[in-house]
Simulated scan of single mutants.
Amino acid sequence: MADALTADPPKTAAARPGSIVLARHGEPDIARDVMLNARGYEEYWGRYEQLGIRPGQTPPPELLEQAAHADVIISSVRRRSIESTQALVGEREVARNPMFVEAPLPAPKFPAALKMSPKVWGFTARFWWWFFNHHAGQETRVQAEARADQAADLIIELAEQGQNVVVMAHGFFNFMIGRSLRKRGWRLTANQGWKYWSTRRFERS
């Protein structure tokens, strides 16, 4: 496995750009039927960031086909993305790049007596991070948007050489990369939503 994109491909643009597919990783191997306060969610998210995916998962046929036709496959460096990519392409060479990790989810400092499910905490933490700049010393929205722009520029450069690109990363940061792609003239041509293993395909004529 490669740790980063190290090749120096030709800089000339292809007659027709390749496609870009942003895929979300498989289902993580962590329980969700728990109720947590803010401190508990911080610990939960810390474990989530370290864990892989539930054993026995198989990528959907459409994603397998997209990967088979991809010239470049990029994975986030998080374990859940790495294991999802291995399930997708086996021992095929993959570029792992920390630029594609998920945006942070710091929990708001709500009273300890308030307990919510991980799903509700995730939505709440993202809302506060996005709209109220609650970052708790972690990456801010502005910083994450700049990172998403850099990620978009990287994969656009590859696609403009005629290469089909598949990125195995994370739900919300894929959304942010998608916004950057659209700002740069790329069209969303297929959208499977945000479930695990879902994909969003971008093309430019």
Rank of each mutant, 00 (worst) to 15 (best):
A2K: 14
T6M: 15
T6I: 13
P10R: 06
G18C: 05
G18N: 01
I20R: 05
V21R: 12
L22Y: 00
P28G: 05
P28K: 05
I30G: 01
A31H: 11
D33G: 10
L36P: 09
A38W: 12
G46W: 10
G46C: 12
G46E: 13
Y48L: 14
Q50K: 13
Q50R: 07
L51I: 14
G52V: 04
I53C: 02
P55Y: 01
Q57I: 04
T58F: 02
L63Q: 03
E65F: 13
Q66C: 09
A67G: 02
A68P: 04
H69S: 15
S84D: 03
Q86N: 02
A87M: 10
L88P: 05
E91V: 11
R92A: 03
V94K: 07
P98T: 04
F100G: 03
L105R: 15
P106Q: 09
P106H: 07
P106Y: 06
K109W: 08
F110P: 08
A113C: 14
K115G: 08
K115T: 12
P118Y: 05
V120L: 15
F123P: 02
F123T: 15
T124N: 07
R126G: 08
R126L: 15
W130N: 14
F132P: 01
N133I: 03
H134W: 10
H135P: 08
E139L: 01
Q143A: 12
A144R: 13
A146M: 11
A146T: 12
A148V: 00
A148W: 00
Q150F: 01
I156D: 01
I156F: 00
I156C: 00
E157H: 12
Q161V: 06
Q161S: 13
V165F: 03
H170I: 00
H170F: 09
H170Y: 02
N174W: 07
F175V: 15
I177S: 08
I177R: 07
R179D: 15
S180D: 02
L181E: 00
L181K: 07
R184E: 01
G185M: 08
R187M: 12
L188Q: 01
T189P: 05
A190Q: 15
W197I: 11
W197D: 05
S198Y: 04
T199M: 11
F202N: 01
